[in-house]
């Protein structure tokens, strides 16, 4: 932006204040997240600076008390199967929506995406009232079903995006050479859509790992997940143990972000080369 016009003092000042403003917004975005990380290493039990010496006691509490260990285990018990289901049904639907036109396709797509759109509280209450008489409340199965429904649209969207840049003649070429359709899928289609599939799966996994509204309604005392424990922790009394969980989850978020960005860049490079 700078450099193509003679810089007046006014322009310099306004450019400078613009940058200061932007820096303040970036600080607002990052500061709270960064600020809680050192608190998890606090030797004392207050959540303020300066730290009362460094220690790993809160991490120790995390990995030794039943409450947090169970919560981590429960989160995985729900997130892993939910992600697996979301991957299968989302990928199949993405292929189905890409390979053919049929009447009402736009409507069907809108319906399949709708779990991303509907406010979580509506999903949670609706499912709770419906599942409770069926014996699916207070069960892992109920949570897995709903989390899979919430995650599947992400897989659908990301796989559809990869398929949009995918040359369907490749699959046709394979089948004209005599490959049965499951071989075409495994050897031609799957490797090409894999980046989209992995991104979608990570979105679905992250959604389940972070979801608490449905868990609040549908989960019983035996299904207390990590977000549920954090929710109660904030409500009752926030301790440094929560900042330790938060730090671990920030690491998870960083890993997810790096992976997704790498996949996205790779996809962009591939599609620009194809052009």
């Amino acid at each position: 932006m700078s450099g193509h016009a003679p810089q007046t003092t006014f322009a310099k000042i306004s450019r400078f204040s613009f940058l200061v403003y932007c820096a303040a917004v970036f600080l607002f975005l990052m500061a709270p997240i960064v600020a809680i990380i050192p608190l998890s290493l606090n030797g004392g039990s207050f959540l303020t600076y300066p730290l009362d010496g460094l220690s790993l006691r809160w991490y120790e509490e995390l990995f030794t008390t039943a409450r947090w260990v169970t919560a981590m285990r429960n989160s995985l018990i729900v997130a892993l199967p939910a992600t697996a289901i979301a991957m299968v049904i989302g990928t199949l639907a993405a292929i189905g929506l890409t390979v053919a036109n049929f009447r009402g396709k736009a409507f069907v797509s809108a319906i399949l995406i709708s779990p991303m759109v509907v406010p979580l509280i509506i999903t949670a209450v609706g499912v709770y009232l419906f599942f409770a008489p069926l014996g699916l409340a207070n069960s892992f199965l109920g949570l897995i079903l709903v989390h899979a429904a919430l995650g599947a649209p992400f897989v659908l969207v990301t796989v559809s995006a990869t398929l949009a840049g995918f040359d369907m003649t490749l699959a046709r070429a394979a089948s004209s050479l005599g490959a049965p359709s499951h071989i075409v899928f495994l050897r031609v289609v799957l490797p090409l859509i894999l980046p989209g599939l992995v991104s979608g799966a990570l979105f679905a996994f992250a959604t389940s790992l972070d979801e608490v509204v449905v868990v609040l309604f549908l989960g019983g005392p035996a299904q207390r997940t990590l977000p549920r424990e954090i929710f109660d922790g904030i409500r009752e009394h926030i301790t440094p143990a929560i900042t330790a969980v938060a730090t671990l989850l920030i690491l998870v978020a960083t890993a997810l972000m790096v992976t997704i960005e790498a996949l996205r860049r790779r996809g962009e490079k591939l599609s620009s080369r194809a052009k």
Partner: peptide, 22 residues
């Protein structure tokens, strides 16, 4: 028809665990 068969599992799944409850 093949497309519909591929879309069906997700549609049925969402129907059970999302659409019908809402």
């Amino acid at each position: 028809l093949r497309a519909l068969v591929l879309v069906l599992p997700m549609f049925a799944f969402l129907a059970l665990s999302f659409l019908v409850p809402i």
